[in-house]
Amino acid sequence: MAKKELLSIRSIVAVGIGSALFVILGRFGSIPTGIPNTNIETTYALLAVFSLLYGPVAGLLIGLIGHTLKDFIFYGSPWFSWVISSGLVGLIIGLLVAGISIQDGVFGKREIIRFNLAQIVANAIAWFAVAPTLDILIYAEPANKVYTQGLAAGAANIVTVAVIGTLLAVAYAKTRTKQGSLRKLG
């Protein structure tokens, strides 16, 4: 879907709507896991799916814009280290899944594995390394605290995308089936 041009109108609109979705799901779409302070943030499943659909640039921008707006509108002030990491997740997933043509309905076992490897790499880099390091650089917080937080958040996001993101991508691919292959039953 419009991956040829870096910033087609469709990708611009996808960034706008994707960011709005990120804001709404970021605020309303968290499910408690039962482990204290660790939630299933469904908004990262959305981010992964939109990166898959609209490419790395859109993924990067949705992460940056969506996260900034969400923090601003609901919590008063953006938490920059995590904003940057969200953008990074979108970018890396988008880069690593390039070539999967999900809009043609292709999303089988191979694509699922590739998508999940991409999201694991992306989330690991963003939450295990970048976010805590930025926390230390910007806010000079204790290293063991921020790395533990990063580890928890990253793990939760990996699980979220693996389950919800994969289910969404598979379901989306199924909606792209062509009518030609179907016949009415008696």
Binding site: I12, V13, V15, G16, S19, V23, G66
Partner: peptide, 12 residues
Amino acid sequence: IAYSVSLALRYI
């Protein structure tokens, strides 16, 4: 890109 921010605000 600037306009996509405006779109996000419009459609939230």
